[in-house]
Deep mutational scan, measured.
Amino acid sequence: GSPGIQSFLPPGWEMRIAPNGRPFFIDHNTKTTTWEDPRLK
């Protein structure tokens, strides 16, 4: 199987799917959430 997208996120980050189907990202380091992919910064 191919590695999940989770493995490509920075340490402490998690990806979830919102009720509307959009992915969002949780930064457990700062306890914040964002719509922006942290890998694109």
Results as ranks from 00 to 15, higher is better:
G1P: 12
G1N: 12
G1A: 14
G1L: 11
S2M: 13
S2L: 13
P3W: 08
P3A: 13
G4I: 12
G4N: 13
G4V: 11
G4K: 11
G4F: 07
I5W: 12
I5V: 12
I5R: 12
I5Y: 13
Q6L: 08
Q6T: 13
Q6F: 03
Q6Y: 03
Q6D: 14
Q6N: 14
Q6R: 08
Q6G: 14
S7P: 14
S7V: 11
S7C: 15
S7T: 13
S7I: 12
F8Y: 12
F8A: 15
F8R: 12
F8P: 15
F8M: 09
F8K: 15
L9H: 01
L9E: 01
L9Q: 01
L9T: 01
P10I: 05
P11Y: 11
P11V: 10
G12F: 05
G12N: 07
G12H: 06
G12L: 03
W13E: 00
W13P: 00
W13R: 00
E14V: 08
E14D: 04
E14N: 02
M15S: 03
M15T: 03
M15H: 02
M15Y: 06
R16I: 09
R16H: 07
R16Q: 07
R16T: 05
I17D: 01
I17Y: 12
I17M: 10
I17V: 09
A18S: 10
A18M: 10
A18K: 05
A18Y: 05
P19N: 09
P19R: 14
P19Q: 09
N20K: 03
N20P: 02
N20Q: 03
G21F: 03
G21Q: 03
G21W: 01
G21H: 05
R22W: 09
R22K: 11
R22L: 09
P23G: 04
F24Y: 15
F24V: 07
F24E: 05
F24L: 08
F24W: 09
F25N: 00
F25G: 00
F25E: 00
F25P: 00
F25V: 00
F25M: 00
F25I: 00
I26W: 06
I26A: 01
D27E: 04
D27G: 00
D27T: 00
D27L: 02
H28R: 06
H28A: 06
N29P: 01
N29M: 08
N29V: 10
N29T: 10
T30K: 07
T30R: 07
T30P: 00
T30V: 03
K31M: 13
K31R: 11
T32F: 10
T32R: 11
T33P: 02
T33N: 06
T34S: 08
T34A: 03
T34E: 01
T34Y: 06
T34D: 01
W35Q: 03
W35L: 06
W35M: 05
W35K: 02
E36A: 10
E36D: 12
E36F: 14
E36W: 14
E36V: 13
E36S: 08
E36K: 12
E36Y: 14
E36N: 11
E36C: 15
D37M: 07
D37W: 08
D37G: 03
D37I: 04
P38G: 01
P38N: 01
P38W: 01
P38S: 01
R39S: 07
R39N: 06
L40W: 11
L40G: 13
L40N: 14
L40H: 09
K41L: 15
K41P: 15
